[in-house]
């Protein structure tokens, strides 16, 4: 869809809005660039001057602590000036439109917008309207995409598994409402993962999810069988009881990842989670803290991946 909007005429990354439609070449380039930033975080002086003098606006129309913080750290490690705006409590509540907010911030000489918004497609809309020198990075829009999370997950998988071509990956949980799952699915299929499964009750899956190239499983036992990677999705509190699911307890019983269920996966399987976790709902503490878990490394890699994305989009206009 947005491949043209995301790339410069000569094929470089201009905005990062979604992983759908981005060529494997670009995804790999982002992962490779992130790899080169890993040592920066391990040094005494954790800074490189790539974005010195650039103003990065964190535009969060929806609350977030973790993602906003990692974007902020990433921008600061690139030596950018970071301005955090929690719009959920300011301008749009006063009736200002999304595009007016963006126009005003552009007038403050922004170079990059990192956008989180509750509506799918909001970063696309902004990208269509910003001046040519401004880049937009999607930090999560509605249920549509969370591309940097998808990329850091790919980075993690590549780090532990060496590649994608022989993997069986299961994504377990609330795919219907998950922008993370959508980004993961696009990335995995683009990078050549031969078998991507989604595992969830029918109430938590989009009706035509199979059209995205995934295998649909309803039972954990068969769903994660022989998988190399098991990705657990967060179940939002408000969805734990009602028409989607009867209770958190029943969800845990059938779809929660316990050490026992994990035995179905390959012995060297890794377990991932985008956070924040609901221990005892979608994942058992023994798994979350166990030897298969790579959940904390995901967070660390997230900074390098976001540095990679920001440096690439900022460099596309140069």
């Amino acid at each position: 869809m947005s491949a043209n909007l995301q790339l410069t005429p000569d094929g470089r990354l201009r905005h990062l809005l979604t992983l759908e439609g981005l060529p494997a070449r670009i995804l790999t380039q982002i992962l490779d660039t992130a790899e080169s930033f890993i040592p920066v975080g391990e040094r005494e002086l954790k800074k490189v001057p790539l974005l010195r003098g650039k103003a990065v606006f964190n535009l969060f129309f929806e609350n977030s602590t973790r993602t906003r913080t990692t974007f902020e750290i990433a921008a600061k490690r690139l030596s950018a000036d970071v301005i955090n705006l929690n719009i959920a409590t300011s301008a749009t509540n006063k009736g200002e439109t999304l595009l007016d907010t963006v126009a005003n911030l552009s007038a403050m000489q922004a170079d990059m917008f990192v956008v989180r918004h509750a509506s799918s497609g909001a970063p696309h809309l902004i990208a269509r309207h910003v001046a040519p020198h401004i880049s937009v990075v999607n930090a999560g829009d509605g249920r549509c995409a969370h591309p940097t999370q998808g990329l850091l997950d790919m980075f993690t998988i590549r780090h532990y598994k060496g590649g994608f071509h022989n993997l069986r990956v299961a994504i377990v949980g609330d795919v219907l409402h998950s922008r993370v799952a959508r980004s993961q699915i696009h990335a995995l299929t683009t990078l050549g993962c031969p078998e991507v499964r989604v595992v969830a009750p029918k109430t938590l899956l989009p009706r035509d999810v199979d059209s995205m190239g995934v295998h649909v499983h309803h039972k954990m036992e068969t769903g994660i069988k022989d998988c190399d990677v098991v990705i657990m999705l967060r179940l939002q509190n408000e969805r734990m009881q009602g028409a989607l699911l009867p209770s958190a307890g029943e969800y845990y019983k059938y779809w929660g990842l316990t050490p026992d269920k994990l035995k179905r996966a390959k012995p060297d399987a890794i377990v991932m989670h985008p956070g924040p976790m609901n221990r005892g709902v979608e994942i058992d503490s023994d798994v979350a803290d166990g030897k298969h878990s790579v959940i904390l490394p995901q967070v660390t890699f997230g900074i390098a991946v976001r540095m990679a994305v920001m440096s690439m989009v900022a460099g596309s206009g140069a």
Binding site: G142, R143, C144, R182, P206, R207, D208, S211, M212
Partner: peptide, 15 residues
């Protein structure tokens, strides 16, 4: 529509 586009873009669907 509750179909391919809703699945891909996470737009809320009308079945």
């Amino acid at each position: 529509h509750d179909g391919v586009v809703s699945a891909r873009y996470g737009l809320p669907a009308i079945p």
